[in-house]
């Protein structure tokens, strides 16, 4: 076991950082918002962490709190602009947002280092990263069948029906989008600390594609999906690379296509029987098959 950790420590770390990003995308998806803007919020978190580190020597706790707060704030502001769009336009607008993020990073040189980028002192360890993922999972597991969680799922499945049940779809989506900004902001802080160098291309299209691909690959119907997806999508190729060089990306691409073609709902699908077995243990069923006949 010790050997495994030594060999794959960084693989696990990056898989977990990507899991955080994928979880961020999943939170938006929870309410039916397909967003790649996680890369933008990640940039907000990552560059704020770098700035705090460089200019104030701030510790990881401060970095995480600031990253989370800024991610949340920026996402909340953008939600006003974006969430009125029809879903596919919204998705494309988040792509545009990611493209613009790079431009902003390049031009805000005094904060981001511009095209040169900026170094970051590493202040996270594996335990912190795993703890963060666990914390998000805990929250999502608790919220899954809470008032908000059920509303979010309802809005995703059928926004009109949800509205007729008293749910305001816009609010639910805005909250989900803001929360996804919070998690992606945290993920940005973590990634910056792991990489120890971030530049204009760190939080760009590749990261945006990676997080949504990991999310969909793992399954968008359960919060465990994005984590499994990130492990398969980011971790597995790293492991393969250590044995065979050069084919890991070809393999990743082919795997993604294959899984989407043959398992369109992703690896973790709560509809699947084995997943439901535990839940569908029949409770004591009193015989009440007939409708009440009143007259």
């Amino acid at each position: 076991m010790g050997g495994f950790w030594d060999q794959y420590r960084s693989v696990v770390e990056f898989a977990m950082a990507n899991a955080l990003f994928a979880l961020g995308s999943w939170i938006a998806m929870w309410a039916g918002v397909f967003s790649m803007a996680g890369a933008t919020f990640g940039a907000v978190g990552g560059f704020s962490a770098a700035y705090l580190d460089l200019h104030m020597g701030a510790g990881i706790v401060v970095q995480l709190l600031v990253g989370a707060g800024l991610g949340l704030g920026v996402a909340a502001l953008l939600s006003v602009l974006l969430l009125k769009l029809e879903s596919h336009w919204m998705a494309m607008a988040t792509v545009a947002l990611v493209l613009i993020t790079r431009v902003v990073v390049l031009s805000a040189e005094e904060y981001t280092g511009g095209s040169v980028g900026t170094g970051v002192t590493r202040r996270v360890d594996l335990v912190t990263v795993i703890a963060l993922v666990a914390l998000v999972c805990y929250a999502l597991a608790r919220l899954r069948r809470s008032r908000y969680g059920m509303a979010a799922h309802a809005v995703r499945e059928d926004a009109a029906v949800a509205a007729a049940l008293g749910v305001n779809p816009f609010t639910v989506r805005a909250v989900a989008f803001a929360a996804s900004g919070l998690v992606a902001g945290v993920a940005g802080v973590v990634l910056a600390n792991l990489l120890q160098y971030i530049g204009p291309d760190t939080f760009f299209i590749t990261l945006a594609f990676t997080m949504v691909a990991a999310m969909v690959l793992g399954g968008t119907y359960h919060w465990a999906g994005p984590i499994v997806g990130a492990i398969v999508f980011v971790g597995l190729p790293e492991v393969v690379r250590s044995y065979v060089d050069g084919v890991d990306e070809l393999m990743t691409g082919a795997l993604l296509v294959l899984i989407m073609v043959f398992m369109p709902r992703g690896l973790i699908d709560p509809r699947r029987q084995w997943f439901r077995r535990r839940a569908s243990q029949p409770v004591a069923q009193e015989p009440a098959p007939q409708p009440e006949v009143v007259r």
């Binding site: 809470s146 008032r147 908000y148 059920m150 799922h153 309802a154 059928d158 949800a162 049940l165 569908s280």
Partner: peptide, 24 residues
Amino acid sequence: RLLSGFNVLEQVVAGMYASRKASS
């Protein structure tokens, strides 16, 4: 128009959104 992914009980609980008070 039921909500895919919810079991029967959850479908009905989904209708109680407005009356549930406990915060997130």
